[in-house]
């Protein structure tokens, strides 16, 4: 099942990845490729390790076995300074937004630019306002993070993630908490960014329809394994019960809704 997605050059190559938290196995000999310039979606039930995968790609966690290469560099063999140099080319949108709470919206977006460039303040202002305009929050630039809703905070975090015009952006649940209008704009924005600037996008999401609408390739994960992969069309017509259950949101199937436990009636 783990036939890799290798028709185009890969920006991220993961081979034989194993990772555990305590006794719990998150990844078990998993391999996958993220194609350059494409939108790749990682989907799967809660707790299947999607966010952990993004942290592994970003070098925030180290695998117990296997290799992760980004732009030809083995993430876990890089020195701290080499890793930071690579991270300047990677944007990440955290599930919580991860905005710095002592800075307002404008300063949050300006933060990576100020840290990594010596641009004059007038140019930084223009760049920040352009990024905020793209996510529809130019008018909210004076607000502090505690004045934003969850959806707005995530849009500010998206503006910050693309502030340095990275080669790759990792989106962790970008559509959660968005109203239908913002959701539509965000979907279009991610697609436009990817196609016009030549970004590579990795989207971790539960929103099957929205993600499938823009993804070029989808991996579906469960219990540390890739249980399905392909283009949205291929997955739609997949004969795999696992894939059909997830794509159609069916409660019964090979993927259990309940976390593994003893018999319910014995437990009562």
């Amino acid at each position: 099942m783990e036939e890799n997605n290798t028709q185009h050059p890969s920006l991220v190559t993961i081979r034989n990845l194993s990772f555990s938290r305590g006794q719990r196995i998150i990844f078990d000999n998993t391999s996958l490729d993220i194609q350059h310039g494409k939108i790749t979606a990682i989907m799967g039930p809660s707790g299947s390790g999607k966010t952990t995968l993004l942290k592994l790609i970003g070098g925030q966690l180290s695998p117990s076995h296997g290799t992760i290469s980004v732009d030809g560099l083995n993430i876990n063999q890089l020195s701290r300074s080499e890793l930071y140099t690579l991270r300047k080319k990677m944007g990440m949108l955290f599930q919580s937004g991860a905005l710095l709470t002592d800075l307002n919206v404008f300063d949050n977006v300006a933060y990576p630019i100020r840290e990594h460039t010596a641009l004059p303040e007038t140019i930084i202002r223009t760049l920040v306002l352009m990024k905020l305009q793209a996510v529809g929050l130019r008018g909210a630039r004076h607000l502090s993070p505690n004045e934003l809703s969850g959806g707005m905070a995530r849009r500010v975090a998206l503006a910050r993630a693309i502030a340095l015009d990275p080669m790759m952006v990792m989106y962790d649940e970008p559509f959660t908490g968005q109203d239908p209008i913002s959701m539509g704009v965000l979907i279009k924005l991610i697609k436009t960014l990817n196609d016009s600037v030549g970004l590579t996008s990795i989207i971790v999401s539960h929103d099957v329809q929205e993600t499938a609408a823009i993804a070029d390739y989808i991996y579906i994960m469960s219990s540390g394994k890739i249980i399905g992969q392909g283009t949205p069309q291929e997955l739609k017509h997949s004969k795999s019960d696992w894939v059909q259950q997830f794509m159609n949101g069916q409660p019964d199937g090979p993927v259990k809704f309940h976390y593994s436990s003893d018999n319910y009636f014995d437990d009562l």
């Binding site: 925030q60 300047k88 944007g91 955290f94 599930q95 991860a98 905005l99 710095l100 840290e115 910050r160």
Partner: peptide, 17 residues
């Protein structure tokens, strides 16, 4: 709280120590 709200992880990912 900065750790709990992923602000420190966010800085790491922005290549800021």
């Amino acid at each position: 709280l900065m750790k709990a709200t992923e602000q420190l992880a966010g800085m790491e990912m922005m290549a800021v120590d």
